[in-house]
Simulated scan of single mutants.
Amino acid sequence: MDGTYTGVVDRIVDGETAVILLEEDDQVIDQLDVAAGRLPEPAQTDGGVLSVTVEDDEVISIVYRPEKTRARRESAREKLDRLSERLSDREE
């Protein structure tokens, strides 16, 4: 698997291993486990969006994408807000 992919930090396990979900066309296509210390510091949290370059099944570079991270978090927050509005409408 070679190329540059969008990666999303799914979780950090025991503070040591970052589980990164690789995406292509907004679909998860693979998962990588890398040492958490290899991530740029701002990306060392769940949901951080990255640009991950892989060659010969080895991670060559990881670049944090702050704007994409922010946009993805805002989108998730908006979806949760809409869901909570619908739920509160049902309770009335």
Rank of each mutant, 00 (worst) to 15 (best):
M1E: 15
M1K: 15
D2H: 08
G3A: 00
T4E: 11
T4D: 04
T4H: 02
T4Q: 08
T4C: 04
G7W: 06
G7C: 08
V8Q: 10
V8H: 00
V8W: 02
V8F: 01
D10A: 03
D10F: 01
D10N: 08
R11T: 00
I12P: 01
I12M: 04
V13W: 07
D14Y: 12
D14T: 08
G15D: 06
A18Y: 06
V19L: 07
V19G: 00
V19T: 03
I20P: 00
I20C: 03
L22P: 11
E23M: 11
E24M: 15
E24V: 13
D25N: 11
D25P: 01
D25I: 03
D26G: 06
D26H: 09
D26L: 06
Q27D: 07
V28G: 01
V28L: 02
D30I: 02
D30K: 07
Q31S: 08
Q31N: 06
L32F: 09
V34W: 00
A35H: 13
A36C: 09
R38E: 15
L39Y: 02
P40M: 00
Q44E: 04
T45I: 11
D46Y: 05
D46P: 02
D46S: 10
D46T: 11
G47P: 09
G47Q: 07
G47F: 07
L50S: 00
S51Q: 01
V52N: 09
V52R: 07
V52C: 10
T53Y: 02
V54F: 03
D56A: 12
D56G: 08
D56V: 06
E58C: 00
I60E: 14
S61Y: 05
S61K: 07
I62Y: 00
I62L: 09
V63K: 13
V63G: 03
Y64F: 11
R65F: 01
R65Q: 14
P66M: 05
K68A: 14
K68H: 11
T69D: 09
R70A: 13
R70F: 10
A71N: 13
R73S: 05
S75N: 07
A76N: 10
A76F: 11
E78W: 01
E78N: 06
D81A: 14
D81Y: 09
R82C: 04
R82E: 14
L83W: 10
L83A: 12
L83K: 12
S84H: 09
S84A: 10
E85T: 07
E85M: 04
R86K: 13
R86G: 15
D89M: 12
D89C: 06
D89E: 15
E91T: 12
E92R: 14
E92L: 14
